[in-house]
């Protein structure tokens, strides 16, 4: 089966992420569903890097990528209000994460000589995707500095885990991305619940409830689709009782 290219998925994620942030910025909290694509894009790029046998684990690359993206979003929030000028905020966040992500990828390729194909592109994509997700989360949760570590960790886990869980014999892009969608829904669900509980949340409770409802619906649909795909993928193994020869 033909795989989705990195730039195609990221192009869609970029447009979707910006649309989502603008919607949330204008008080339409349901726009968070548009942030699911950046999750997929980040998970796909982690897969793109980790499948070549990194000198580090999937976890490290997830932590690193989110560190670039989230740190950019956190630092920019100091000067540019994510609430009053969401477009300027997202532009600044994406630009800064692009520069840091690309620079790190080029250094890993040229100085450290990793020789992983498209490492610089994947680094930049992970950084920008996670930056957009962080920016969206900050818009919902408000500038509550105490929640920054929570935002960082929850996004990290959602982007690093799909490939880590799916890796091994028979891993394919479709199943990994579907698992990324499951985790994206799960993450926005938790963000919605925390926004309801947080005292400094910047959107009304009805908006938080809408996020929780949309994420819960998405989660159910994604889990069912993912479970069906897992069953379909393991059909040969279930049938024979032995791993297929081509795996």
């Amino acid at each position: 089966m033909k795989e989705i290219q990195i730039h195609t998925l990221f192009g869609a994620a970029l447009l979707s992420g910006i649309a989502g942030i603008l919607l949330i910025g204008h008080g339409i909290s349901i726009g968070i569903v548009f942030l699911w694509l950046p999750f997929l894009s980040a998970a796909n790029s982690i897969r793109g890097m980790a499948m070549y046998g990194l000198g580090t684990g999937n976890a490290s690359i997830g932590y690193w990528g989110t560190a670039v993206g989230a740190t950019s979003a956190f630092v920019v929030s100091l000067s540019v209000s994510c609430r009053s000028t969401p477009l300027l905020y997202v532009a600044a966040v994406v630009a800064i994460s692009l520069v840091i992500g690309l620079a790190t990828g080029i250094l890993a390729d040229k100085v450290i000589r990793m020789r992983i194909p498209r490492i610089e592109l994947n680094s930049a994509v992970i950084a920008m995707s996670t930056a957009m997700i962080t920016a969206g989360s900050l818009l919902i949760l408000g500038n509550d500095y105490g929640l920054y570590p929570f935002i960082y960790i929850i996004i990290t886990l959602a982007v690093l885990h799909p490939y880590n869980a799916s890796t091994g014999a028979g891993e394919n892009q479709k199943r990994t991305l579907l698992l990324a969608l499951v985790e994206a829904c799960m993450t926005t669900l938790v963000i919605g619940i925390v926004a309801m509980l947080a005292s400094r949340s910047s959107i009304p409770v009805s908006g938080d409830v809408a996020i929780v409802a949309a994420s819960a619906c998405g989660l159910v649909i994604a889990v069912v689709a993912w479970y069906r795909l897992v069953k379909s993928d393991i059909y040969e193994i279930r049938w024979t009782g032995y791993p297929p020869a081509e795996h």
Binding site: L54, T56, S60, W64, A67, T71, F74, T104, Y145, Y152
Partner: peptide, 19 residues
């Protein structure tokens, strides 16, 4: 803010040598 930014800088720099 300084704590989370310092953690971010730490994670960015600590993964590079792993390569």
């Amino acid at each position: 803010l300084a704590g989370i930014v310092a953690a971010g800088v730490f994670l960015i720099n600590s993964v590079l040598p792993a390569y």
